[in-house]
Design a protein around this nucleic acid. Structure first.
Lengths: 211, 211
DNA sequence: CTTAAAACTTGGAGGCATTGCAAAGTTTCA
DNA sequence: TGAAACTTTGCAATGCCTCCAAGTTTTAAG
């Protein structure tokens, strides 16, 4: 059964509102655009906007929500013989080395980050997403390596910190309008340095047994 | 020159507003008390409240602001032969072992934490304070160990994470109304486990030379 | 094809945080 | 004592967000 007309329209409307809102925020800044502005530009009522998005911040950070699962996904998909940390480091290096937009390595990311950096509300929401990511990763590690003790939470904390640190650094550099390829190269160095700060205990946690 | 009447009154008023607000929040929760309620209870106008506190959240987290300097202070005060991490671990252990209210080890902390846990706005503000603490610590480490490379930021990240993790765990346990002495004992174990996750690199960073 | 139920949209009213402004009221200091 | 400096206050306004009741549209059953 093909998905109903209703579903399709809903997704389209949601996407349209989010796109238009993002455009306005990039153009004028987060604070300078009201929800009423967004509603008008998207040709819906303010109530409809709130029907799709719980809060104004979600209009801008809608996409970043796939970032929440990223760490858990990477760990769940680790290869035989790889630890959780190995998987995270490998996946991160692949994206950074490939100058992937997924990690912010594209010219337009500067504008995006500036909007966030200038808005306390958006920064807050971003931290909240990172917290969620951390919680999710801890849950995954408890599933994969047993729920005993503090280790799942502690290792999750280390890996989430690693990820947040690298992403934060990239954001800070990109906001200076630096060349993505150059930032990519230096980010790889940062990843190396950060890896050296992780203990063996962390690096060898939750190794997937060879099948 | 004795401090003027004006200064004294200002400090008293500020303190009174903060105290009354805290009492109301503890009693009814953060969201259920309006700024107008606080103003009325403190017998001042709403504008006066905003004169002293930038936002509603600051009425509750006023005290937590000494927490911002804590890590920097500990590191700056490290003893001869001690690294930054040594100092943080030592000071933290002293407070935890002493069942100090400073680290949340007192019965009333449960109510305090519940108010925060129930309010996204307060949680946000708390993260913001932690971020500030991290930034401050990184600055301190750059002063104390030289500004080259990423190391000051990375080590600051590790130490701030350690502190936030332990404090967060204590908060979570105290919110369950557990016995402070018991939580203290277990927290010491957590600190041990966490220390084992720090690399030698971190543990030996910024050692103060024997004078 | 008709029709009732379910789901979506909308307008309107209202609560609350926060800001700006100008009119008092108070404290300081010459 | 009187002007300067600083505080407090009332008032108005903006903007986020919620609730509610009245339409509209889509679905699915008959």
């Amino acid at each position: 059964m093909a998905e109903g007309l209703r579903e399709r329209k809903k997704r389209q409307t949601r996407q349209r509102i989010s796109d238009i809102a993002t455009g306005l925020f990039l153009e004028r800044g987060f604070a300078a655009v009201t929800v009423a502005d967004v509603a008008e530009a998207a040709d819906v009522s303010v109530n409809t906007v709130y029907n799709y998005f719980p809060a104004k911040e979600d209009l801008f950070l809608d996409r970043g929500e796939d970032m929440v699962d990223r760490l858990s996904r990477w760990v769940r998909g680790r290869r035989a013989g790889e630890s959780a940390a190995d998987a995270v480091l490998r996946e991160l290096r692949v994206l950074v080395e490939g100058v992937s937009p997924t990690v912010g390595l594209f010219a337009g990311y500067a504008d995006f980050m500036r909007v966030i950096a200038d808005s306390p509300a958006l920064r807050s929401r971003l931290w909240a997403l990172q917290q969620e990511s951390l919680r999710g990763l801890a849950a995954t590690l408890r599933e994969e390596a047993g729920p005993e003790g503090h280790l799942p939470d502690l290792v999750a904390g280390q890996l989430a910190w690693l990820h947040a640190t690298v992403m934060g650094w990239i954001g800070a550099e990109m906001i200076e309008r630096r060349d993505p390829a150059e930032v990519s190269r230096e980010a790889l160095v940062l990843i190396d340095e950060t890896e050296e700060l992780l203990s063996e205990r962390v690096l060898n946690y939750a190794v997937r047994e060879p099948s």
